[in-house]
């Protein structure tokens, strides 16, 4: 029971962090003229979860974040879009994480790119306009850059927190 409570508290903290950064990001537009372009700081929390709590935790927190943020700050289409990105991104990150050659930054880069491609596929499916493929090179660059930043951040946070807590060791 003690472990369960601890886990619950940890998930809640991570979810709160993911939601706060999602909210702050929504307030600060990136002036590229294309709505929806953002750093995806919430992915810091997701990459962090993937390493700290495992796939299950990352999955739960990611889905909860998308649904809660969608209900609080967005709309139905936003949720659909975020969900497509989040699910594809998480699946790819889980796969890449299994390859030991890649570290947290690599996982995050793959996740960032996969997120963008997931959303592009959804947009292609909804609009049926193949010309959207022209966005792919832009999405690759943006995904790689944001993934790199988020991964580096997650890496630093993970190391610092690991140094100060033994929480994870108790669970093992």
């Amino acid at each position: 029971m003690r472990l369960h409570t601890k886990k619950l508290a940890e998930y809640a903290c991570l979810l709160a962090f993911a939601m706060i950064v999602s909210y702050i990001e929504a307030l600060i537009p990136i002036p590229l003229g294309i709505p929806g372009v953002k750093l995806g700081l919430a992915n810091v929390a997701i990459v962090f979860c993937l390493y700290r709590t495992g796939i299950g935790g990352a999955f739960i927190i990611n889905i909860c974040r998308v649904l809660l943020c969608g209900l609080l700050f967005g709309n139905a289409y936003g949720v659909l879009y975020s969900l497509a990105g989040a699910v594809v991104s998480l699946l790819i990150m889980v796969c890449v994480k299994r390859i030991s050659a890649f570290g947290m930054v690599g996982v995050s880069i793959a996740g960032g790119v996969a997120h963008n491609i997931g959303q592009l596929l959804l947009a292609l499916g909804i609009t049926q306009v193949p010309v959207l493929w022209y966005y792919l090179p832009f999405l690759l660059v943006i995904g790689a850059l944001t993934g790199f930043l988020n991964g580096s951040l997650a890496n630093v946070i993970y190391k610092r927190i690991a140094k100060h807590t033994e929480l994870h060791d108790n669970e093992k």
Binding site: I99, A101, F102, G103, V105, G106, I109, A110, V113, L140, V141, G143, A144, L145, G147, F148, G151, S152, N155
Partner: peptide, 14 residues
């Protein structure tokens, strides 16, 4: 950061 991470980043960027 691992070597593979940098390669992945460079490939996507390129």
């Amino acid at each position: 950061m691992k070597k593979a991470d940098i390669i992945l980043f460079s490939v996507f960027l390129l």
